[in-house]
Design a protein around this nucleic acid. Sequence first.
DNA 1: TCGCGGATGAACT
DNA 2: GTTCATCCGCGAG
Length: 212
Amino acid sequence: MIGSHPDAPASLRPPLPRLLTRAELPRDTIALARFLLGKIVVRRLEGGLATGRIVETEAYLDGDPACHAYRGMTPRNRSLFLDVGHAYVYRCYGTCWMLNVSSEAPGTGAGVLLRALEPLRGIEHMRRARARASVKDLARGPGRLAEALRIDRSLDGIDLLRRGDLWIGSDGARTGAVGESVRIGLTKGAEARLRYYIAGSGFLSGSRTLNR
DNA sequence: TCGCGGATGAACT
DNA sequence: GTTCATCCGCGAG
């Protein structure tokens, strides 16, 4: 855990991650799901920045019955059809928001669900929304991740490759071994092994058996 | 540690 | 009216 106090002098704070460029993102959805592991989500909140390392993703492919774009474009899912690197945010089960990164070329509906973060910076800001959660549980699961970072519909469609209220960067950290499993919680397309995670991370959702 | 059920709201059929 | 990529708390083992 690398968090630091919000009032610390700037020189003592970890540097901001480098912004990713659109050119370096794979347009292939599976490749993007793997590429995003180890990258850093940066959220600008009142009070300061909150950041976390992506440790778990799921791929939702073109032509995949589990993908929201499967039946074509609708008002809800149109962000999935944007060029790679835009946010698709939707509400699930009435209570949770989900953050996805659009993948593929413009006009193709596919994306990567961000399922878990290792909190890095601004943990106290994330705790404002999730006061009862331990650091380990702050962003362990897609609904928790969105709650900790206060992500909602207002961020749907934004470009994640610009320094704004929500963006994705890299600190150059290398990702170790990547595990894969079936995706979690699905009723359609449940057999496909399209979930990816940083092996051994202590911040993963899912059961033990899925994470080995 | 696991599995269960309720809460909850919007999109879609 | 049905579906849903979740979370939380509870109770059993």
